[in-house]
């Protein structure tokens, strides 16, 4: 029922169109908003969009890393559905620790450890027990969401540490701190995945595990690492979320589908139509601009979900059609 894995990615007209088309569509959307809402292109607004996109973006980076290492076949490839729940739990852990009077380092350290622990669990189940990532992370998502509920009893835990203050209100060179965090994490991950042997091997593992194995690459270790990175992204995003909402929030799990959508959208922004951090950053911004533009144009934000759904289907259908039948 699934399209069989792509055996050879020959460049076709469709592929080229898709790639150029994605950037053109991006530009067109920006243009429409810029014409419709005069202050859309104001530097303040653009910086604001960046800051607003930080949470979704960082989560999507984590997911992208997992997809790079697991391959983009949805059922058998890499997938981490627990990223959003991880954010919820990490934010709750941070708020709880902060309110309980733990020091800044202990709070930050334990929050990061929470995210890593979730990544560890996923890695263990996927790599150790060979569960399909879709099922494994669906289950761990529920577990993690349950733990968050236990911690927060489904309420908002307010928190206001200096770190959160700085993240929420800090501005450097006229750009808000959250925007810097988004760009910073993106830069770090681009360095890691596009510029190191680790990244190249991760791509090899994801695209053709047998070939990676034959090349002496420790396949399972790389997949494991990708889940750890994703876990870490979950807790990094938790800081951003805690800063944005001045504490932990309920219902962070609802972000999951947007994150998945962004990560899959990101592939059309990469030169080779594969998951990449850069592509995901662009997709994050596209969604961010859409939400922002709708606000400025006074269009109901309820359209955003639907548009995202249509975009996913469009992208997948196009890339599927430009692919040869088995």
């Amino acid at each position: 029922m699934n399209p069989s894995p792509v055996e050879a990615a020959r460049p076709r007209l469709g592929t080229l169109l898709l790639r150029r088309g994605a950037l053109l569509a991006f530009a067109a959307i920006l243009l429409v908003f810029a014409l419709g809402a005069p202050n859309f292109l104001a530097p303040g607004n653009l910086a604001n969009v960046l800051a607003q996109s930080a949470i979704l973006g960082i989560l999507a980076f984590g997911l992208t890393t997992v997809i790079v290492g697991g391959g983009s076949n949805v059922l058998s490839g890499g997938l981490d559905l627990s990223v959003a729940a991880n954010l919820g739990l990490s934010a709750a852990v941070y708020a709880t620790l902060d309110n309980a009077g733990y020091g800044a380092f202990a709070g930050i350290g334990l929050t990061l450890a929470t995210g890593l622990a979730v990544g560890l669990l996923n890695g263990l189940v996927v790599v150790g027990f060979r569960l399909p990532p879709l099922l494994a992370t669906l289950a761990s998502m529920n577990l993690v969401a349950g733990l968050e509920l236990v911690l927060t009893e489904n309420t908002v835990l307010p928190s206001a540490s200096p770190l959160l203050e700085w993240l929420a209100f800090g501005v450097w060179l006229g750009v808000p701190a959250l925007a810097w965090v988004l760009l910073g994490v993106a830069a770090l991950l681009i360095l890691l995945i596009d510029c190191t042997p680790f990244g190249l091997r991760l791509y090899a593992v994801g695209e053709y595990p047998e070939a990676a194995h034959a090349a002496g690459i420790a396949v399972r270790r790389h997949v494991f690492a990708s889940y750890l990175i994703s876990g870490l992204c979950g807790s990094l995003a938790a800081f951003c979320s805690a800063a944005w909402f001045s504490g932990s929030t309920t219902g962070s799990g609802e972000m999951l589908l947007s994150v998945v959508a962004i990560a899959f959208l990101g592939t059309i922004f990469s030169r080779r139509l594969r998951p990449s951090i850069g592509g995901t950053l662009l997709a994050t911004l596209l969604v961010g601009f859409m939400i922002n533009g709708f606000q400025l144009l006074n269009i109901s934000s309820f359209w955003v979900n639907g548009l995202q759904g249509v975009l996913i289907l469009l992208v997948v259908a196009l890339s599927g059609l430009s692919r040869k039948e088995p």
């Binding site: 695209e207 053709y208 090349a215």
Partner: peptide, 19 residues
């Protein structure tokens, strides 16, 4: 079997695992 990822460039395909 040709054990090379189809999405890799020539140099990536030659050097992955032995970068």
């Amino acid at each position: 079997e040709r054990l090379l990822p189809a999405g890799f460039t020539v140099d990536e395909a030659l050097f992955f695992g032995q970068e």
